[in-house]
Simulated assay, not measured.
Amino acid sequence: MSGLWQYFEENNEIFAALVAALAILGGLLGSVIGAKIQANGGRDQAAAAREAAAIAAEAQRVAALWTVRQVQIAEYIQGVRKVDRLACQYYLEDSADGALRMQLDEVQEDLSLKQAELELVAPTSVVHATRNLMFSINKIVQVSASEGPGAYRYHAVHSQTSNEESNVSALARQAVYALNNLRRASESGDLAAREAAYQVASQAVCSSMGWTPRQTGIALRYCLNTRSAEGRRRRAKQGLHEGTDALIEAARTMLKSEDDVAPTVPTQRRRWLRRSRSEAVPPTA
């Protein structure tokens, strides 16, 4: 080793050239290592960016789906309640012109479309609830269209008993008396008595209300079946309300209405930062 140092001392030019070469080689080696570290860091940054973009896209998708479900469910329930209100109108107004039936057909068609949309985006529990509810909707419309017109005319006769014009109220009281006799005759099971009471009630109602025989017949048929008709309506209303409640419960579960609805995004894993920090800490002895 001493001989080598003596050689370099005697040949300063060679020693200087060797030192310069070593410095250049060290610089090149440092550049290569630095470039490799930078490249690895760049790849980790790119991977982290892709992961963050995927998380953001998923969060946006979930938020958009949540909004679509909420809007469609709300519109569906609103449509169900509109059907219920329209069905009640059969008991409150004269529906002979068919306008009410047309309104109901339009709302039911819209509900059918809403149900098809929900079948594409809602979970199975909500889809089943809408199908069960649609059965209840059809049932209450059927019962209301069948029993409502008779109930409307039957109660219209009773309402005339309080008319301010005495002759009108007197005829109405006679009609109500005849209707009560018709009901009692029907409940007795005596067919002859029922037939006679039916004829008397028909004449009394026509005289009181000025209705056609067909309109009068609608009121009389309801009179003969008041209890069963009221029972069918009550069961149909109960089925509709229970079906609506079941859908609302399924929808609230789907939308997590009882939970914190603030969007939660998984914490981004900053792998490049952790790696750079680990490289900056010198290994322990």
Rank of each mutant, 00 (worst) to 15 (best):
Y91D: 09
T67M: 10
S202I: 05
A175Y: 00
Y91T: 06
R269D: 05
N12F: 14
A129L: 00
A39H: 10
L25T: 13
E165C: 08
Y177Q: 14
A250I: 03
D245P: 05
D44Y: 06
Y152G: 11
C88P: 02
A57V: 01
R153Y: 07
V200T: 08
L86K: 01
E51C: 02
V71K: 11
T130G: 00
L191P: 04
R184T: 13
E9G: 04
A54T: 00
K139G: 11
A172L: 00
K82R: 13
D84R: 09
V121S: 06
G26P: 06
K114Q: 15
K237I: 10
W211K: 05
T244V: 05
A17K: 13
E249D: 12
Y76H: 11
T264P: 03
E75A: 15
A17S: 12
Y152W: 11
V62S: 09
P266S: 06
V265Q: 02
M209I: 05
L25S: 13
A129K: 04
V200N: 04
H241C: 10
P263V: 05
V71M: 10
S31R: 14
C206P: 07
I14D: 15
A87H: 00
L120F: 04
G148L: 08
N138H: 11
P149A: 12
L255F: 04
L18Y: 13
L224T: 07
T264L: 12
C206W: 10
P149K: 13
W5F: 09
V32Q: 14
A74V: 10
C206D: 14
Q160L: 08
V265P: 00
G150E: 07
Q115Y: 06
A178F: 01
Q203L: 05
N11W: 07
S144Y: 06
H158K: 08
R227I: 11
G42I: 05
M254N: 10
V143Y: 11
V157S: 02
A122D: 03
G243Y: 00
S159E: 08
M254T: 11
G148Q: 09
D259C: 08
L179T: 02
S144Q: 10
G41K: 15
R194Y: 15
K114P: 07
L182I: 02
T253D: 11
E58T: 02
I55Y: 01
T244C: 04
V121P: 04
D259G: 07
V143M: 13
V141E: 11
A196Q: 11
F8K: 06
Q268V: 09
A99S: 10
N11A: 10
N12S: 15
A246N: 07
W272K: 04
R173F: 03
R50V: 04
L28T: 09
L255A: 05
R69S: 06
